[in-house]
Computed example of a mutant assay.
Amino acid sequence: MQLDRTHVKVRARSLAEIGDLALCLVRRYPKALLVGFTLGALPWAVMNLLLLGWIPIQEARSGIFDEQTYYEGLRYVWLMVCLVFLQAPIAGNLTTYYIGQAVFEERPTWRAVLKACWQVKGATILSLGIIRGPLPAMLILATNWGGEFAPGREVFWVLMFVLWSMGTRALRPFIPEILLLERCPIRARDERSISAGRRSSLLHSPLSGDLIGRFLMIAMVCTCLALTVFYSLISIRGFLTNQWNWNLTIGSLDIPDVQIIWLPLALWIVAGLSVFIRFLCYLDARIRLEGWEVELAVRAEALRQFGTDSSPILSPPKAETVA
């Protein structure tokens, strides 16, 4: 492996350049999105369908479009958007690991990707699944399954989880890369290793202002992209079926395909793109703070001369150097 010969030129970039490069990475590594993110997001999408799908199905069965139907539709859209937002980081684990290896001209097999992600399943479930809110939010919504609108559980608590996740992802966005690519443990086992919490503080604290600004800009761009993708899918559906309402009518059967299929699909497509953007922001942060391009050049030369570099490609600095 030539660590100084990467598919992505290692240099500091502006946010506009990162967005453009993310699209280039999607084109170069389509499997990372089509296979990796699909495998990661599919279980969450199925759970979301089981958790919320009864709302549009129940309204479609009534065959009546009134004010209640309208508000039930808004209820479903709100909850689905919130769940996908909360689940996006953990759903992108496979994609994160794949592109973290692929940019170094080492395209791992999906078996190797699954194995590597499985090895840190406990840390990722704790950090991305519990602390950042998706599993607790789903548990709260499950307590009201099949019931009427509950403002406390479906607005207040869900909003609290979303705001908490926004804060942690604005100030500590690179936790997936720290756990998956740098392989930092939740707790340091010895003096030479760095815990995920300490590594997170070292990587994020010096750039906190810039990270918040980038998070807000990326959030606005992703919102616009999600609306664009959604209405593009709806337009294609309308041209193919000549039906422009929210339910697809087949004989006497009304299927709420827009809410069950096309809305989640649009959200997950943009969520997959956000994984690429976050990964490139992570590389940019390491370049700005640690001179990572110099480290790669030195390690590449050591490999060519001695063949004695067995540490992970994206490993953090040694504990002694950051003490």
Rank of each mutant, 00 (worst) to 15 (best):
S195A: 07
W268Q: 14
R214V: 07
V81R: 01
Q259R: 13
F215N: 12
A16W: 07
A319K: 01
P317R: 13
V8G: 11
T168M: 06
A88V: 14
L49G: 09
A91Y: 10
R214E: 08
R214C: 03
L179H: 04
R304P: 00
I277K: 01
G167H: 14
Q101M: 10
L34E: 12
P185T: 02
L171H: 09
S195Q: 05
T321Q: 14
E17K: 12
L180E: 10
T143C: 15
F104N: 06
L34Q: 05
G291P: 03
P136V: 09
L42V: 14
C117D: 01
T143M: 15
Y70C: 02
E191I: 11
A123W: 02
L267V: 00
T249G: 14
T321M: 13
Q243D: 03
L202K: 11
A323W: 07
L233P: 13
E72Y: 13
W262G: 08
L273Y: 07
R237S: 06
E177S: 05
L74G: 04
A302P: 06
W44Q: 01
W110R: 08
G133H: 14
F215Y: 14
L248F: 04
I261A: 11
P56L: 03
G146R: 12
L34G: 07
I261W: 06
E105D: 10
R299C: 12
T321N: 12
S232M: 10
L227R: 10
W268I: 13
P185K: 05
I277L: 05
N144Y: 08
A137H: 02
L83P: 02
Q101Y: 04
A302W: 00
N93D: 12
P136Q: 04
L265Q: 13
G152C: 15
A12M: 04
N48R: 09
A116D: 09
R192I: 04
T241P: 10
E301D: 07
T321F: 14
A123Q: 11
R169V: 08
L171A: 13
S165M: 11
A45V: 04
G147H: 06
L33R: 00
A271R: 09
R153P: 04
L211V: 14
R278Y: 09
T69L: 02
F306R: 13
L21A: 08
Y70S: 01
I99L: 11
V275A: 05
Q243W: 00
A123T: 15
T69G: 09
D257Y: 04
V77A: 15
I313W: 01
L211S: 03
L126R: 07
E301K: 08
R61I: 07
P317I: 14
I261D: 08
V298Y: 08
S311I: 10
P206N: 08
R13S: 08
G129N: 10
A271F: 06
A170F: 05
N242E: 13
S315H: 06
L39C: 09
G129H: 02
V155K: 02
E72A: 15
T109D: 11
F279M: 04
G251W: 01
F215L: 12
P312N: 08
W262L: 14
I130R: 11
Y70R: 05
N245R: 12
E106L: 03
E301S: 15
P56F: 11
S208R: 09
R237A: 07
F149P: 07
R237C: 05
R172Q: 15
G167V: 11
F306K: 12
F276A: 12
N48K: 03
V155S: 03
G122F: 11
L207P: 02
R214P: 06
T95K: 01
Q68S: 06
S195H: 05
A226F: 09
G63Q: 13
T109K: 13
